[in-house]
Structure formats: structure tokens, C-alpha cells
């Protein structure tokens, strides 16, 4: 049976002492299920990491429960949005050179709750590096990349910045510098978009 999160949220606002524990118990399973449904297929997206993100989200909510606006969507969706941001932030922390890659991913899939700007995922705050790397690895495996694109992705993962190196990987070293830059950017953008789509579909 679905818990009445709205009523429990109201109890939190009223200062009922047991409400945080009751709400925590009520939301943990549905929240972990949402995280698992969305990110469970991605490598590095371990059960422990999901639980960390879920706990962080709940405690962040408890710091300022009044921030939840029922007119903008369901409470559990609100919590999921915080947890998702947190999950990605945890992943980013260990892989700062993937920030641009992960940060370029479209994260705000329509979940029926519009997250205020200050609660959205901020790539500048740093992801968990190994987890971000794992997320990208999983996307790499689950997405149809050509061999050349995989080579480019591997270079991006390593933090390679030289257009010349990317041009060699793409076998376009014979082109002029400007053309190389345009083509490298085009391929990189395509790869980022596919990873983003892969993460969004997971």
C-alpha cells in the first residue's frame, strides 16, 4: 500500500517527534526502487550508492521540509529529484575530468516535479570520479558506438584535450586545423548526447 507521504510531510511540518522516523521508513523502499529503475542498469550505480543518495536526500529534505511545494508535484518525486542529483554528485566527486561530460547530460527528464534551480544538479560541485566513470562505462557498453567513437570516448575519459590527438583518433589529421576542430567537436557532442540519452533511459 502506498504511504500517504503528504500526510507524513504535514506531520513533519507540525513538529511531530516520531514523524521523521516514520517517513523515513515509509519512503525508503519506493525511493530506492525509483533510483534502481532509473540508474540500476548503470555500472557503478551500486545499491550502496543508491542508499547513500537516498539517505542524503532524506536528510536534506529534513533540514528544510518547508521547501517542498505540494503544488509542484508528489512528495516522493521531490525526494527522488534530490536523490538523483545527489547520486550524480557522488559520482562526479571521484571523476572531476568527467564533469563536463556528465554535466552536459540532460538530467531533467520530466518526472512531474519541477526542481527549483538551487536544488538541481550542479556539475561545478564535483561528482564522485569512479562512479561517474562507471556511469559512462555502462553507457558506453549499452550504446551503439562505432569503434572510432569508442576511441574518442576513451580519450575524453582520460581527460585528453588536444584536438590533434582527437583528430588522429578520428583519422582526420589530414584536414586543416579549423576543420579538425569542428569535426572533433561534432563527434564529441554526439557522444555526449548518446550518453545522456542512455542515462536518461536507464
Amino acid at each position: 500500500m502506498q504511504a500517504d507521504f503528504q500526510a507524513l510531510h504535514q506531520q513533519i511540518l507540525e513538529g511531530r517527534p516520531a514523524a521523521p522516523a516514520v517517513l523515513f521508513q515509509a519512503c525508503r523502499k519506493p525511493l530506492l526502487k525509483l533510483l534502481n529503475d532509473k540508474f540500476g542498469m548503470l555500472p557503478g550505480s551500486s545499491a550502496d550508492l543508491h542508499e547513500d543518495a537516498a539517505a542524503d536526500a532524506f536528510m536534506q529534505y529534513l533540514k528544510a521540509p518547508e521547501k517542498y511545494d505540494a503544488t509542484r508535484g508528489a512528495w516522493i518525486t521531490y525526494l527522488f529529484q534530490i536523490a538523483r542529483s545527489r547520486l550524480l554528485r557522488l559520482a562526479e566527486r571521484e571523476n572531476r575530468h568527467l564533469v563536463a561530460l556528465a554535466g552536459s547530460v540532460e538530467l531533467d527528464a520530466d518526472m512531474g516535479y519541477s526542481v527549483p534551480a538551487d536544488e538541481r544538479f550542479d556539475p561545478q560541485n564535483g561528482l564522485d570520479q569512479s562512479d561517474a566513470s562507471n556511469l559512462v562505462d555502462r553507457a558506453r557498453e549499452s550504446t551503439e558506438f562505432t569503434q572510432v567513437e569508442r576511441r574518442v570516448l576513451d580519450l575524453m575519459k582520460k581527460g585528453e584535450r588536444s584536438t590533434k590527438v582527437f583528430a588522429q583518433a578520428l583519422a582526420i589529421a589530414h584536414l586543416g586545423a579549423d576543420d579538425q576542430r569542428v569535426e572533433v567537436k561534432r563527434v564529441k557532442d554526439r557522444i555526449k548526447k548518446r550518453i545522456g540519452r542512455s542515462m536518461g533511459d536507464a
Partner: peptide, 18 residues
């Protein structure tokens, strides 16, 4: 599962209202 609850307790240490 204790993991999520344990992490919540650790974070709760910083919340004097709990």
C-alpha cells in the same frame, strides 16, 4: 537494510533538532 539508515543517523548528527 542498515546502510541507508546508518548513513541517515550519521548525517542526523549534524541536525540538532534530531
Amino acid at each position: 537494510s542498515d546502510h541507508m539508515l546508518e548513513r541517515a543517523e550519521t548525517l542526523a548528527l549534524e541536525n540538532p533538532g534530531l
